[in-house]
Design a protein around this nucleic acid. Structure first.
Lengths: 333, 333
DNA sequence: GTGAAAGCGCTAACAT
DNA sequence: ATGTTAGCGCTTTCAC
């Protein structure tokens, strides 16, 4: 194994000079720097991560706790993860992937000094991990908005505003018979933060606009999506406007509407909350509030980096929704 | 920070006794063990990962290099990742997630002693990472089968056999006018190992069964799937059997067939290569060779663990395909 | 069955 | 602008 000692000897300098050349924490003459860099390249030296962590109390690793569950929208998760990993690498950080299922993952990687900061996805309104991370010395960023964030930074898409805007888009077009097909029952039952906020926003807007508030969750299986659609049509037989926030259900619902002879948008307008690529990929391009998952992942990393740089401002950042009008909404006939 | 010293003091033993209690590498009297474990619990002690890595030359971390690309089937990837992470945790390993895009990710985490072993996904037939990992002291497991594995262990689904069996299933039913809709052009162009083997198997079986060999790649956008279907129907107007290996294209193709008035399976039989949940989730349950991605991820971890335990047997494991007959295939009329 | 102590490879004072 | 060196917290000989 090539150590910093080998590099120092070969460059004819001391180990601290090599260390400082690497870290840039003190000025090194051009000639020395050149010799050190040559020695590093010649020997193929890579600093030992463990030794570095021990001496510096920094690991340059983030923990990312992701819901590797079947009922959570897989493409959104992958985008979060991709955003986090790629942004982390630009700051020379690696990402350790943890699952939700492990009982004390937070304590293990935190107290064990395995990571410098934690990013938690799929946060619930009253998430049991929040007291755990609050007890750590590492900063934590939540993707989601719990009821009580306890001094932990948060970032998320503004699902509440998104639900309000989606519905308002329909009511502004003149739709009065509307409904929401939402996330799977399990997601709602465990009070996933985004689902709570989504429903709250939709209810508020329905009240505000004076339209009926019909909400049906939909599971991920195609049968469940169709069942949800059936339930909606039973409650609102004259349905002309539908908000869908459920990636798995969206294509099934569109197909089912077509089979029932209900055209989109002539008979029924559909607005979705979905990543841009999903909304765009449907046979009829869907008017949607794009969920900028990639961007949220990047912001989470930026917030973690800021905290590591010493900023102790605990902030909550909500990404504002923007409606992308495609061809699935129109005034009712 | 709670250190092993604090634990030793509180338990009234030496640090080595604490260390050995933790590792189980020498016998400890029941009473001593009890006191040590109590001290650990009381103090909430977690060993410092960096210190441990430095002293033991083991990090208990695997690197998993995953294709965080848009053109790769996202649900299959998530299943691999889930399989790797959950299995790794059962052996007290964590998983560091790397992207393909980073130039020298392999060298950085390997030479830097950040990880004990590497698992590479999305392997290409002539993958540039193979010489890189061959130069490391850490063992590597490839998910995929390169042309020249250079003493690196491999595991994958047997796509070649799967393609042969899929086509044989159709020809055995009596279909003569058949075609394959395959992975995106980019995946084929960069000679992703699985795509190469899939095409090879399909061609071989087509020759063997004396049927025409029509292969169309399909991009991930719905328009591209439809274009691929058009191309196939132009080349084989009397098409009665279709093999599809493309998760994104599958639902679009099924919908498009329906719209063209071609019923499945009465007019056209469809057999897919897809994860069980995807095949099952289509409006018509699809006869498919299930891609056991979760299981492959687990096997990759098991192979890595075996190598770390000292086994130097470099092996290649191919998971045999099994056809799950659902309701999308029937004899031609 | 238990302890003492020598490192593991690096960073960051404290030197000059 | 560079060198010397004391740890960082743990594992693992060596010793009893």
């Amino acid at each position: 194994m090539v150590t910093i000692n080998d590099v120092a000897r070969r460059a004819g300098v001391s180990v601290s000079t090599v260390s400082y050349t690497l870290s840039g924490k003190r000025t090194i003459s051009a000639s020395t720097r050149a010799r050190v860099e040559k020695a590093i390249a010649d020997l193929g030296y890579h600093p030992h991560a463990g030794a570095r962590a021990l001496a510096s109390a920094r690991t340059n690793i983030f923990a990312l706790m992701a819901p590797l569950r079947p009922d959570v929208d897989v493409s959104v998760i992958m985008q979060f993860v991709t955003g986090v990993v790629t942004r982390a690498r630009t700051a020379d950080y690696d990402v350790l992937l943890l699952t939700q299922d492990e009982a004390d993952g937070v304590g293990r990687v935190g107290s064990g000094s395995l990571v410098d900061a934690l990013i938690l996805m799929d946060v619930e309104s009253d998430d049991p991990r929040i007291p755990q991370v609050a007890a750590l010395r590492q900063p934590t960023i939540l993707i989601g908005l719990p009821e009580d964030a306890r001094g932990v930074s948060c970032v998320d898409f503004d699902f509440e505003a998104a639900a309000r805007l989606s519905l308002r888009h329909l009511t502004a077009l003149g739709h009065r018979n509307v409904a929401l097909i939402g996330p799977p029952p399990a997601v709602i039952a465990r009070h996933t933060s985004y689902a709570d906020r989504l429903l709250r926003g939709y209810r508020a807007q329905a009240t505000h606009d004076g339209v009926g508030c019909v909400i049906e969750p939909a599971g991920t299986a195609p049968g469940e999506a169709i069942a949800a659609l059936d339930a909606v049509l039973t409650q609102v037989p004259d349905l002309t406007g539908l908000v869908v926030h459920n990636e798995a259900a969206l294509p099934v619902i569109l197909a089912s509407l077509r089979e029932r002879g209900r055209r989109v948008p002539e008979d029924i307008s559909v607005v979705a909350l979905a990543p841009a690529d999903v909304a765009d990929a449907q046979p009829v391009p869907i008017t949607a509030m794009d969920i900028p998952a990639l961007n949220i992942g990047q912001v989470a990393v930026d917030m973690a980096l800021a905290r590591l740089r010493g900023s102790d401002t605990v902030e909550t950042r909500l990404i504002a929704p923007t409606l992308h009008e495609r061809s699935s909404t129109a005034p009712p006939r």
